[in-house]
Design a binder for these strands. Structure first.
Lengths: 151, 151
DNA sequence: GATAGGGCTTCCAACGATGGGAAGGTCAAG
DNA sequence: CTTGACCTTCCCATCGTTGGAAGCCCTATC
């Protein structure tokens, strides 16, 4: 089948299929005499694997590892589980960070009457730094960079 | 003060300060005779505002709006609150999506014994599509986002 | 005065994953 | 043969941030 059909069957856009091929995530597809890429059902299955893994938030880099394990009949499920749990942990952290942002913002928004007057605790917070009332995380070290082996 | 000192005082890297200037988020800094940028305490305050807003997950585009309101003494706090609540809503959605990924993955990881045998429900799920057992979201729309920045 | 070092300047590239679009070749139906 | 849908490659843009190169400036020390 052509790339468009494979895209429809897998849920991966034709653009991305070409991209995955260019980066080596998937093998180069076969070609017709005129240069069109051709895909088998097995190819579509790989694409669906990728699609599903992307939906679960795995990076393309991790997906490459997962595909390698998927194809390896002598794999150890522990290796797969390690990748999955590491990803879960990454998600957990990012969720926690965003949750913290959200809590802080909700707190500020609740304190803002949101009418036609200019007084606004949200802007006050942004202008003066985190309100001392709720220091959730240790004061961000106001140092971004310096002796950390720069240049 | 020089850009390096302003960076240290604001928590925004010199690189980013130049970038913000180039995109128009902040006004072009003054220059010494030899071309060095110079910053006042007021400039540093703006940079800190930006830093804090970035820490709360606002996009640079939104920050531009917030700074405009910040400077506008005739602003209506409702405008600020609208921006904030819209951002809260965006965070809420992205958190929900990631939470769903995490829940699914945790479910799969729990079912994976993670030993030296090849059998692995995680790979089975990826290879065959979402397990029918827990179809949380039926239609699965077209994109899984894993980073911030809905563009 | 010469030199070393650090800070500053600009410009260019890369990251990750995806979409948009141009310029042109191919295929199938009418 | 024409039309339109499809395919090809190539480049650009996103978004925020970092890295690096080449070169100028400032200060301190010899």
């Amino acid at each position: 089948m052509n790339i468009g059909e494979a895209a429809r069957a897998s849920g991966v856009s034709a653009k991305m299929i070409r991209y995955y091929e260019s980066t080596g995530l998937i093998a180069a597809a076969g070609r017709t005499a005129s240069g069109y890429r051709t895909y088998s059902d097995a190819d579509v299955q790989v694409l669906r694997f990728i699609r599903r893994a992307r939906d679960l938030g795995f990076s393309v880099e991790r997906i490459a590892e997962l595909i390698a394990l998927w194809r390896d009949r002598t794999r150890q499920s522990g290796d797969v589980k390690r990748i999955a749990t590491a990803h879960i942990e990454g998600l957990r952290q990012r969720i926690a960070e965003m949750q913290e942002m959200m809590d802080t913002l909700q707190h500020l928004a609740d304190a803002c009457c949101g009418d036609d007057r200019p007084d606004c605790p949200i802007l006050s917070d942004l202008g003066t730094g985190p309100a001392a009332a709720r220091n959730r995380h240790a004061p961000r070290d106001s140092r971004g960079l310096q002796t950390k082996g720069a240049h």
